[in-house]
Amino acid sequence: MTVYGTLILGCMSMLIGFLAQRSRMCFVAGVRDYILVRDRELLMGMFSFLITLWIMTSLLYAFNILRSGVPEYGAPAIRVSIEKIGTYSLSVGNLKTLFQKGPTGGIGLLITSRFLYVTLIGGLVIGLVSTLAGGCVLRQHVLLAQGSMDALFFILGFYGAVVIYYGFLYRFFVRLY
């Protein structure tokens, strides 16, 4: 444990929380508002976030400053280094492997990888439930800080789910990978 990294992460998160409260930023409400009332303001927040990340990662990879992943097409395939799922690797979804031929790559491997469907359905459920709850996870934190007790119960469930997941559900869900 280094105090230094913890402090940097804490300060960055505090600043993000502060700015999120000031701007009412929410990644789910952007799309939701656009579908419901054609309000583009929060959607622009999401797009500027996305474009900033895309430009910054491409630049930093080009100058070889960012080395956290495998630099492919200016951006990495995410390598999940979580232990116990060591064999499973997200680099299957790398664009290079997508166009490779042979047993180790190609579209066939991608389509047969179960993680693709887990990701699709997981994203669907997260989007659906976040819309019903009224905001993404970041927004729920901000709402709790503004005094909404609904968000308090959301965050309680949020923390409780970790213990439930790793206590009981892990042995079933780990087979999905």
Binding site: V28, T52, W54, Y73, G74, A75, G93, G123, L128, T131
Partner: peptide, 19 residues
């Protein structure tokens, strides 16, 4: 934003879920 394919898949799923 980092260019992860599975991130894009999850984002597409999320947009569909929001719909």
């Amino acid at each position: 934003g980092y260019g992860d394919f599975f991130g894009m898949v999850a984002l597409a799923g999320m947009v569909f879920g929001i719909w």
